[in-house]
Amino acid sequence: MGSANLRKISTVVSLVMSKFTIGNRANISAGEHNTRVAVITYDHVARIVANFTDINSLGDLSTVLNKIQVSNTADANLYE
């Protein structure tokens, strides 16, 4: 995937995740539930970009997704 498709996926993920309450501090006994989110990228190697504890809001997720860059590794098989 090239940079244009990476941005499209980032936008779609943000739109889908906007329907969820993202966070790590749910009070389950009070009926509060949160969705935990982590981000992993891969080209020829998988990399943890953000752990479950790093993303506590939709803004955090958007920031993480917008910082992801297209790999310049020949092994990544990127196509526009």
Rank of each mutant, 00 (worst) to 15 (best):
N34P: 00
A46I: 04
D54H: 05
H44P: 03
V70D: 02
L6N: 04
F52V: 14
F20L: 08
R25E: 15
M1A: 11
T63K: 15
V49C: 10
A74D: 15
V70E: 15
L58V: 09
T11C: 08
S10M: 06
N66F: 02
E80S: 12
V16K: 04
V49H: 04
T73H: 15
A50L: 10
M17N: 05
D54W: 02
Y79Q: 10
A50S: 13
A50E: 07
S29K: 00
A46R: 08
T41D: 12
Y79E: 04
I28Q: 10
M17Q: 01
M17A: 12
V45Y: 15
I55Q: 09
T21Y: 04
F52I: 12
N34D: 05
N72G: 14
N72I: 08
Y42N: 11
K67F: 01
S57D: 07
R47F: 05
T35F: 07
V12A: 15
I40P: 07
T73L: 15
I22Q: 04
S14M: 12
Q69S: 11
G23H: 06
H33Y: 12
S18I: 00
S3D: 07
V70I: 12
L6M: 08
T63M: 06
I40L: 12
A30E: 13
T53I: 12
R36W: 00
T53Y: 15
I48D: 03
A26Q: 09
S3F: 06
G23A: 05
R36D: 01
S3R: 11
Y79M: 10
A30Q: 13
G31I: 08
A4G: 00
H33E: 06
D60Y: 05
G2L: 08
V13M: 06
A74K: 15
N34C: 13
D43G: 11
V64W: 08
M1N: 07
S18K: 09
I68K: 02
V39L: 07
M17R: 02
L6Y: 00
S71A: 13
H44N: 15
N27V: 03
A76K: 06
G2S: 05
R7D: 09
M17G: 04
T73Y: 14
V13F: 05
S62N: 14
V37F: 08
V39Q: 02
V64F: 03
Y42F: 14
G59R: 06
A46G: 03
D75F: 02
A50C: 10
V70W: 02
L6A: 03
V45L: 14
S62T: 13
A50I: 08
S3V: 08
H33C: 09
S29W: 03
Y42L: 05
M17F: 11
N27R: 14
I55S: 12
N27Q: 11
L58R: 00
E32W: 00
R47P: 00
R7W: 02
N51W: 10
F20M: 10
G59W: 08
A30T: 04
I48H: 11
E32S: 06
G31M: 06
N24K: 01
R7C: 02
I22E: 03
K8V: 01
I48P: 03
S14D: 07
N24D: 10
R47S: 05
V13W: 06
N66T: 02
A46D: 03
G59T: 15
